[in-house]
Design a protein around this nucleic acid. Structure first.
Lengths: 245, 245
DNA sequence: ACCTGAACACCGTTCAAGT
DNA sequence: ACCTGAACACCGTTCAAGT
């Protein structure tokens, strides 16, 4: 069974379009144009034909640089994740720095509705995804989470943030997929669904960011209290994968 | 500004196709045919044209019963959620019953890749979604979670489960969107990404269900320890949207 | 070798025309 | 009133032909 090629490895294609009339094509300019289109027109607007048109060429030309639409989407997603800040304030405690990384990730995705949706359906294992992953593992280690738990926890964290970003971008996206739900919840009868009726205000209360902040607390306290492996006494080994706490 | 019509309210359309040759059309048979197609062919396969073809008619005909593709997808999702069991074993403690509901929800979505993806991008506020919501609120109340926290917690729970179902269905779906990631993680260099390298096995370990079970523990302990409002002594009143806080 | 227009097999949606 | 074929404006992808 053939394994998918790594879309992030360079491929030997040279553009022959030079001069002032047309800028030379490359993976970079294609991905940049696509990301721009994604931000302006949403996920649906980022079609191969539209990207090609923005670059003054035909859709078929793009196939010299990209396998298919899925690969382009994967590249675009990782490119967008370049905006996630993982540096962090040097002196700050781990919790503040972890929050910073996650908030940055959330903001990058929530910037445009298309991006969050794309992140939900695509698993990008590009350089920027890996950079974020590494940063999160490092911070969890610093927090005293054992490696086995941390490995699963990052998955959980990214899953939750991505989903939250989708909700948030829908919320501010206007096109009322949320207004409809709010309307239904507001008009639910107290006989059939007494608890929904009682909680109708709370169910839709809070900004996306308030919910995000609360969710982060839930996650962190949950993760800190649900180690996959029971805590062990510190070892003397090199890399300090010490259990802590 | 116009608010979206509730797609779950009945609409007055009568089919004129009777007799043995063609079964009469209705919202129900259209949704059933679409769900069947979704399960067999995935989300992409469930096009209006394909659904129409399965019902021996043209795509235009469906527009008498359904506003557009989005509405059909919303109806299909809620219909699928009819399979979620909220009854529960009467005598069991709340945690076991909560787990049962969530596991059932997870299984229904993970059954077919298209369904989980659909749930991720669609907010269905149909009768079955409401039924699940009501059950979860009830169980969280029983667990001692205050109403304000419970209202936000169900959102978090459903978000996480849906995301987990997407991952799970991708995992078993074969078409290697995960094999690629696993490959990248396995070959990541220990210089640039030391923690990813060290955790390369743990990052992809565990079955979808094992991760689900662990995630549930994380959630519950996190939610139980992160009340939005400080814990109060039990009251004697019936139930009321009391001011709180 | 890169680039391209045209073609193929699809979409969702609309609409005038049928019964 | 329901149903329909045809048309419109799109898709992703392939391929033979250009330079």
């Amino acid at each position: 069974m053939a394994v998918a090629r790594n879309p992030f490895s360079p491929r030997p294609v040279k553009s022959r379009r030079g001069g002032p009339a047309k800028a030379p094509l490359s993976r970079e300019v294609i991905v940049a144009a696509a990301l721009d289109l994604l931000r302006r027109e949403g996920l649906e607007g980022m079609s191969l034909r539209q990207v090609a048109a923005a670059l003054d060429t035909g859709a078929a030309t793009l196939y010299a640089y990209v396998d298919d639409l899925l690969e382009l989407q994967t590249l675009v997603l990782d490119r967008a994740l370049a905006g996630v800040e993982t540096g962090g304030r040097p002196g700050a405690p781990w919790k503040a720095r972890l929050r910073d990384v996650l908030v940055s990730y959330f903001h990058v995705l929530a910037q445009s509705p298309g991006l969050a949706t794309l992140a939900m359906r695509t698993v990008a294992a590009g350089p920027n995804t890996l950079r974020v992953l590494e940063a999160l593992l490092s911070l969890l280690e610093e927090a005293g989470v054992d490696p086995g738990t941390a490995a699963w926890a990052v998955d959980l964290l990214l899953l939750w943030i991505t989903g939250s970003a989708v909700e948030q971008s829908l919320r501010q996206g206007g096109r009322d997929p949320l207004g409809f739900v709010a309307q239904v919840i507001a008009t639910v009868g107290s006989e059939r669904f007494p608890r929904i009726h009682a909680a109708r205000d709370e169910l839709i209360s809070g900004s996306g960011f308030e919910r995000f902040a609360w969710g982060l607390d839930v996650f962190l306290s949950g993760i800190l209290q649900s180690p996959r492996t029971p805590a062990r006494p510190p070892r003397a080994g090199r890399r300090g994968a010490r259990p802590a706490r």
